Computed example of a mutant assay.
Amino acid sequence: MQWYEKLHDYFPEHEMKDPHQLVDLLEEKDDVYHIKETDNYIILYAEFTNFIFIDYLLVTPHSRSRGIGTKVLSTLKQKGKMILLEAEPDDPDYEDTRKRLAFYKKNGFKKAERIRYAPEDLEGHEYPMHVMYWSPVELEEEIIMGRMEKACKEIHNFKSKQYYGKILVDPDTALKLKH
C-alpha cells in the first residue's frame, strides 16, 4: 500500500483514515469508492448517483505545477455531477493550505459559505474545514449540506466503530448550516 504511505506523508494526521478502513471501502463499496493512482497523482473518491466526493487528492511533489491536478478534476467534471471535497482553511504557518485553496478556486470550486464543518480528531478536538464544491448547475447550500451529510455517513463513518471505536464524523455535530 505504497499509495497510503504517500498520502500519510502529505496529509495531516487527523485527516488520515485507518489504512484498513480505506481498503475495506475500496473492496466492499467498489461500486462507489474508487482509487486512481499513477506516478503523478493519487485520488480516492466516492461516486454517488448525483455527486462525487473527493476523499483524497495528491499530486506528487515532482509533478506539481504541471496541470496534472487540473486534468484529474476535469476528468471528474466531465461526468456532469457536482464535486464535493473538504479543504483546510488558509493557515499562514502552512503554505500548502493557501496553495490548495488557490488550486481549487482556479478550477472553479467555491466554498460553501453557509456550511460550518468542524469534525473532531480521535482525541475529540475540533478542526475546522471548508466544504468546497464545483457544480455544472447552481445549487442551494441546503443541497450541498445534504450531500456532505451523505459523504460523512457513507464514507467517513464506513465501519468507523470497528476501526476507531466511535463514529468518525458525526454530521449532526460536525455540520451546521448558517442562516
Rank of each mutant, 00 (worst) to 15 (best):
L73F: 04
F53M: 04
R64D: 05
L76F: 04
T75P: 01
V72P: 08
I54G: 09
S63V: 05
Y56R: 12
I54K: 09
D55T: 12
G80Q: 10
G80N: 11
Q78T: 02
I83S: 12
L73G: 07
K81A: 00
T70F: 02
P61W: 07
P61H: 11
R64S: 03
S63H: 06
H62V: 10
K71V: 02
E86D: 15
V72A: 01
Q78S: 08
E86W: 13
K71G: 01
I54C: 10
V59L: 13
P61V: 10
K79S: 09
T70C: 01
K71R: 10
R66A: 09
G80L: 10
A87V: 15
D55M: 14
V72E: 02
S65W: 07
K81L: 14
T60E: 07
K77S: 01
Q78C: 03
V72W: 04
V72K: 05
L57S: 15
I54S: 06
M82F: 08
L58P: 09
S74A: 11
G69P: 06
A87R: 12
V72Q: 03
R66E: 14
L73Q: 02
Y56P: 09
V59R: 13
V72H: 07
V72C: 03
G69Q: 07
L85N: 09
T60A: 05
H62S: 11
G69W: 02
I83Y: 10
V59K: 14
T75R: 03
F53Q: 05
T75K: 07
L85A: 13
S74M: 10
S65M: 13
S65C: 13
G67C: 04
K71S: 08
T70V: 00
G67E: 01
R64I: 12
S74R: 09
T75S: 08
T70K: 00
I83C: 12
Q78F: 01
